[in-house]
Design a binder for these strands. Structure first.
Length: 826
DNA sequence: ATCTCCCGCCATATG
DNA sequence: CATATGGCGGGAGAT
């Protein structure tokens, strides 16, 4: 037995350890774990405690003088628990958890100060560590590799590492964020989500994947390791070139958090992106599994560092594991490499990076040709380069570059390809001041989770003119503006920042063209698209479907067989039989309102559905109508886009779809969606959609161009959800409750009123009460609302939500179920 | 059954 | 060559 003592000592506090003397440490002789039948599952309690508290506690105790009140508490708690539980039988057998990487990491971290004094460097000797912590070397490598990726340690030589602590963290994160942006991870995420929606792989005829793979999405970027200038990583010597895949993976994983809006990344998405992100992803199942395993490893370490925490995102299919960034916010680059200087100044909340229009474009037009579009490597590249260019060029935050469609199309290839992972220059980093660091730290300390509320100021001015949006956005709250003349209503979206606060996820959103008219047509389009996010109800029902692949909603089982279009038709016809309808039990609807809201915040008129009659629409069943696709896509932002009816016709909105891209809306610019008139609807419904009118295009483009970085519409529909509380919005947020509802309430539907539009305006606030200001944070689950409206007199929404959360319109109904996404902590 | 993810074989890199 | 590193995936504990 070797140093049993040590171990015991260390772990003692935290874990209930057995006395050293009692047992010889060597392999624990199989103590049966959980042996005794404790009435109370001591283990479970312990686990919980440990997992929850131990980390922090640990760290302090050991070498650290830091005392944290909270930690104290925890400790105490812990102790109590211990006593209670255990008494004499401590049966400490090493449950699996006790051997977890996370715990081990804690122990490891406890040995070194977060902020070691610069003067004295601390070195890490792997041999010592392994011995002291009683772990196999292999495990230590896992930890160290992740720490290395964050530049918290660097390797000196065999067996030797230098401990830097968190001093470099700010720079590292900033660097990672930057790189993440350059890699267009946001887009990748969206693409992935989009694909999910799509039918899986059936009809992929497009086999030219290879090409895509070559550059396409991921490119070579895959392999580089982001280094910090300041930090000496003696790399070359030691690192030479190695795989470092774990390190790279870790960095990329972190990048995903830094770049994505809600700072929540699901393992699934991360894995896909990390895997070459190629299109092949689907094929390789084992590879995927492996990636997931690695991600768990990394996540455990990051969790120990308190940079992330585990949460669950509830989506249509059920909940998926995900992690939420709880680390420091990354400040915008202070001084970036030259050109970038643009708009950094503005907003503190950095998380939302600049949305690129390209993305938007992509998203927008995907349907038409889209598949190729997304996949085609050359295109992707183009986009990227454009993006970069744009960034450089665009100096004023206020003036977003507008891209016209034509431009886009004709885009010449930009000569400059950007190096994917440019090394970060020292200067940049150096620029950072300590203060910044401190701030970050503070941020970190404070619970990040609770999202700080944006300032009140943001209240949207109702009357904001459309304008360029400042890059930094102030938050916009969704307000609906009644529209004067046309009777079209406008909605204003929330500022992204707000949105996020509220929301957890911003999914990409797409509107698919719903060719109601032609059923068949749908298929050709992407049927897949939207729906993913169906309400939970569906899920429940669905039960276990096919395993892995997420299917488009339609795909779902039988019932779904129908294409969305078909469904649409049905609905329009008001077919009662629709299964969907049933599913959505929720809807009851009051039929009055007029507009449909998409979660995305856009108001979308439903043409197809329209036959226009309320009667028809009114059908509950109908509600289901577009459901397939219809699923709502909510965007973080709530906005409604009013369009003149006339436009609609032309455009045939139903036909168009928005893909998950990020559409950024500038606060100022309020997108207006045309609202359909009945007549329009009628007409549109039948006919297939012609090309969108140019006006429509412009419209879209404008938005794109206008959109300030902050707002992203995209996202997957999936994620979003609106909490529906039947009545109490406020409540809805609260964690637990939400879940409960899941089955039932979960969907919210927005409806548009077609006919009635004109005089009324829809209110955007769908589900939530306007009044509810931010809530204190929820303990566990965070629900997002996209729709929260700031209270305002004006805001009154015309729509009413049914108790179940469904809203209806009198006439046409668009049914958009909103899924709620929930993020729950574990 | 699914989610986590520990364990440790074994290919590589390093010295 | 001996080790140090670390990719990888089986399969078992947790839920």
């Amino acid at each position: 037995l070797k140093t049993p003592l040590k171990q015991a000592a260390t772990s003692q506090l935290v874990l209930t350890e057995r006395q050293p003397d009692c047992q010889p440490l060597t392999t624990p002789p199989k103590p049966k774990e959980t042996p005794p039948a404790d009435p109370w599952t001591p283990t479970s309690n312990l686990k919980m405690l440990i997992s929850a508290a131990s980390p922090e506690i640990r760290s302090r105790e050991q070498r650290r003088q830091l005392s944290d009140s909270s930690s104290e508490v925890l400790q105490t708690k812990h102790c109590l628990q211990e006593h209670l539980l255990g008494d004499e039988y401590e049966k400490s057998q090493p449950s699996r958890k006790e051997k977890s990487l996370g715990l081990l990491c804690h122990k490891f971290l406890a040995r070194y100060p977060d902020y070691p004094s610069p003067s004295q460097k601390s070195y890490i000797c792997l041999d010592e560590v392994t011995e002291e912590l009683h772990v196999e070397r292999r495990r230590i490598y896992d930890i160290v590799n992740v720490l290395e990726s964050l530049h918290m340690v660097s390797r000196l030589a065999r067996n030797r590492y230098v401990w830097h602590g968190r001093h470099n963290l700010p720079q590292t994160l900033q660097a990672l964020k930057k790189v993440g942006e350059e890699n267009k991870y946001i887009q990748q995420i969206q693409m992935i989500k989009k694909r999910e929606y799509e039918h899986e792989f059936d009809p992929d005829s497009e086999r030219n994947e290879e090409m895509a793979s070559s550059f396409g999405s991921s490119e070579p970027s895959e392999m580089s390791f982001v280094e910090l200038p300041g930090v000496e990583f003696r790399a070359a010597s030691v690192n030479g070139r190695k795989y470092k895949s774990l390190r790279v993976m870790s960095q990329k994983f972190v990048m995903l958090f830094l770049v994505s809006a809600p700072q929540i990344v699901s393992l699934e998405v991360a894995a896909k992106i990390l895997i070459g992100e190629d299109q092949l992803e689907d094929l390789d199942k084992s590879k995927f599994k492996t990636k997931i395993r690695r991600l768990y490893d990394i996540a455990n370490v990051l969790s120990s560092l308190k940079l992330i925490k585990k949460v669950h995102v509830t989506e249509e299919r059920g909940r998926k594991p995900a992690f939420k960034w709880t680390g420091p916010e990354v400040l915008p680059n202070t001084q970036d490499t030259k050109l970038e200087a643009t708009s950094t100044a503005c907003s503190p909340p950095i998380s939302e990076s600049i949305p690129s229009k390209e993305q938007c474009l992509k998203a927008l037009f995907p349907s038409k040709g889209k598949q190729n579009f997304t996949r085609h490597s050359s295109l992707i590249k183009l986009v990227k380069s454009i993006e970069n260019d744009r960034r450089k060029i665009q100096s004023a935050p206020t003036s977003p570059v507008k891209i016209s469609a034509s431009t886009y199309q004709s885009l010449p290839v930009f000569p400059n390809t950007i190096a994917q992972f440019p090394a970060i220059t020292k200067h940049q980093l150096e620029g950072q001041s300590k203060t910044a660091e401190e701030m970050q730290m503070k941020c970190a300390l404070s619970s990040p989770e609770a999202v700080p509320k944006p300032e009140p100021s943001q209240q949207p001015a109702l009357s904001q003119p459309l304008g360029a949006c400042p890059s930094s956005h102030s938050s916009v709250s969704p307000v609906i503006l009644p529209h004067p003349q046309s009777g079209v209503s406008y909605a204003i979206y929330l500022h992204p920042s707000q949105a996020h606060m509220v929301t957890t996820y911003s999914p990409g959103f797409m509107l698919q063209p719903l060719p109601c008219a032609n059923v068949t047509g749908i298929k050709s389009n992407n049927p897949k698209v939207l729906n993913k996010i169906t309400a939970e109800e569906g899920d429940t029902r669905r039960g276990p479907d096919e395993p892995t692949k997420p299917l488009a909603a339609e795909e779902r089982p039988d019932t779904k067989s129908e294409t969305s279009s078909q469904r649409c038709l049905k609905r329009s016809q008001a077919l009662p039989e629709n299964n969907l309808i049933k599913r959505r039990k929720s809807d009851e609807e009051s039929l009055d309102t007029s507009l449909t809201f998409f979660p995305s915040g856009y108001l979308i008129p439903l043409t197809h559905c329209t036959h226009g009659n309320k009667a028809e629409c009114s059908n509950k069943e109908k509600a289901g109508v577009c459901s397939l696709q219809h699923t709502a896509y909510s965007s973080p932002i709530t906005g409604v886009i009013p369009m003149p009816a006339s436009e609609l016709k032309t455009v045939n909105i139903p036909a168009f779809h928005i893909t998950p891209l990020n559409i950024m809306l500038s606060p100022n610019s309020i997108a207006a969606a045309p609202v359909l008139s009945n007549s329009c609807l009628n007409s549109s419904g039948a006919s297939s959609a012609p090309n969108p009118s140019s006006s429509a295009l412009n419209f879209m483009l404008q938005h794109i161009g206008l959109i300030p970085a902050g707002v992203q519409v995209s996202a997957n529909p999936v994620l979003q959800h609106v909490p529906v509380s039947s009545q109490s919005e406020n409540i809805s947020h609260s964690s637990g409750s939400t879940n409960v509802q899941e089955g039932k309430v979960s969907e919210n539907i927005l409806q548009l009123d077609r006919g009635g539009l004109s005089g009324k305006y829809g209110a955007v606030t769908p589900l939530q009460q306007p009044s509810a200001p931010k809530e204190p944070q929820e303990p566990q689950a965070v629900t997002e609302n996209f729709f929260r409206t700031p209270g305002g007199p004006n805001t009154e929404p015309s729509l009413s939500a049914s108790s179940d959360g469904t809203q209806r319109t009198s006439q046409g109904t668009l049914y958009i179920p909103q899924r709620k996404l929930e993020v729950s902590e574990d």
